[in-house]
Amino acid sequence: MSIDWITVAAQIANFLVLVWLLKRFLYRPILDGIDAREVEIRQRMQEAVQAKEQAQSVEQAYQDKVQALNVAQSQMTETIRKTAEEQRDVLLAEAQKRLNQEHATWQAHLDDEAQKYIEKMHKAGAQALLLLTRKALKDLADEDLEARIAHHLVGKIKPMLPDLGRAAGRASEAVITSQATLPVTVEGELTTRLQRYFPQIAIRFEVNEKQAPGIVLRIGGAELEWTVASYIDSLDAVMQEQLATGIDATGKVP
């Protein structure tokens, strides 16, 4: 057992060289690698935490947006429903109004048509009544209707003479109107008779096609007439009474 001091010196040098070599090629690379990996892992974990937080914030924002959209959708649906209801009510009201208007128009038209028909019926009834009366008068008494009307009108003047005289006042003309031109004989008789009562008054004859068949006398503010209009009214009343009480096909009243 001996110590070789040259070997000792060499071994000290060798050991120091080995320390440097291992420091250079082992410890530093390994420890630096571990440190770098730790830094990288820490950085990645930090990034992961940040990414997680970011994902959570994005998720929260998404949830908020979805919730806002749901709320907006509900509000929009409610608004649309209300608008639709209002629009439906408006349309229904307009339709009802238009229907009422059309109904009123239709009713007015119907009334107008009915009025026209009644007038037509009155006219036809009057003509028929006049024709039948004229025919029956001719057949039974061999007389003209117009002459009998004139005679009847003149007959009505006599009892009303004072009233007519007051009404005539200072009138200088009396007007006799008829639906058709009166026969000359009838005009003559009327002129003769009237001038017997009112000698100062001139007689004038007029034709009014709109007037009911018959004769109308106007002196000043007085008017005296005989037309079939009153008979037509009586005919209406009789027919309505007959229809109200009922009438069978044979014309017998039950």
């Binding site: 057992m1 070997t7 071994q11 000290i12 050991f15």
Partner: peptide
């Protein structure tokens, strides 16, 4: 083994 040499162990101890 170099560690079986007293010179080596002495060198290490001196170090």
């Amino acid at each position: 083994p170099p560690t079986a040499s007293l010179s080596t162990t002495t060198a290490l101890a001196l170090s």
